[in-house]
Design a protein around this nucleic acid. Structure first.
Lengths: 151, 151
DNA sequence: CTTGAAACTCACATGAC
DNA sequence: GTCATGTGAGTTTCAAG
């Protein structure tokens, strides 16, 4: 992982469909050297995959919510039951175990407030391991994720 | 946006480099029809862009933190000063305005705890508009974002 | 690291149904 | 919406410097 690799990753995070020829030119490397580096980073798992990024609003996912969750206990069975439930809910886009007052932070996208209520009441609150939740409704996005900053 | 478009988007969110031929086969559509739909969704901004997704840990970004931020006021100059500062910090990957006790939720990735302390003390605390912050250190990721669920 | 070449696949545009 | 087709472009690998 030298500075050329980081340059490559920066470009690929912005444009995952750039041709090798164009990429090598932007990096200032020959086509074959550039190709070798990209394939190596793919094989090493540095580049996980390539993905289309879609516009949340245009597909109707108007409501984005962050939820802080506290469990009844840190006992293994509560943790496992919670994580299993989380993994089974497709509206839950991500979930992190965190320090602080709450145990988990999750991100959710749904079509409408009614959908959120349904998820909150029927799915999340129904998990026995959950003792408390706090809803942080996203009002607007100041900064969107556009790839990691590599220095 | 019919169910075929959603199928296409689901596949492209998983594999942004799949060939049109392979995509059309997975969707059950002819190559030209599939190609037409993809190009249309790109033009319409439904597909924003394509991006390589890189592994945070392997590039050394070991520390991921969520930060809740409260401002001194909701006055326009405080909001604008804060948002401008946020946009100028590359370690801040995303920032959402939220409801609740705090005003913003931001996500940060850095190499080390020391880097986080520097960001927290020298950059974030230095924004005059900020009155209070709460750090939620991510201990582990239960579920990673792998694209939106389209139904 | 470089250049150059060969073999192959895919994109893309087209015309026809 | 489907199928067929041809050309140009991009990928991938290899050899040699």
């Amino acid at each position: 992982m030298d500075s050329l690799d980081k340059k490559i990753l920066s470009v690929l995070q912005q444009d995952g469909q750039i041709s090798m020829a164009a990429l090598s030119e932007r990096i200032g490397l020959s086509l074959s050297a550039c190709h070798r580096r990209v394939k190596l980073m793919e094989a090493d798992g540095i580049i996980r995959n390539y993905a289309a990024q879609i516009d949340r609003q245009t597909v109707g996912l108007e409501v984005q919510v962050f939820i802080e969750v506290k469990l009844n206990s840190q006992r293994r069975e509560d943790l496992e039951a919670f994580e299993k439930a989380i993994l089974s809910m497709p509206e839950i886009l991500e979930c992190h175990m965190i320090t602080g007052e709450f145990d988990f932070l999750i991100r959710v996208c749904v079509h409408s407030p009614a959908d959120y209520e349904a998820l909150y009441r029927s799915s999340l609150s129904a998990i026995p391991a959950v003792s408390q939740m706090k809803t942080l409704l996203s009002l607007s996005t100041v900064k969107e994720f556009r790839g990691y900053h590599l220095r």
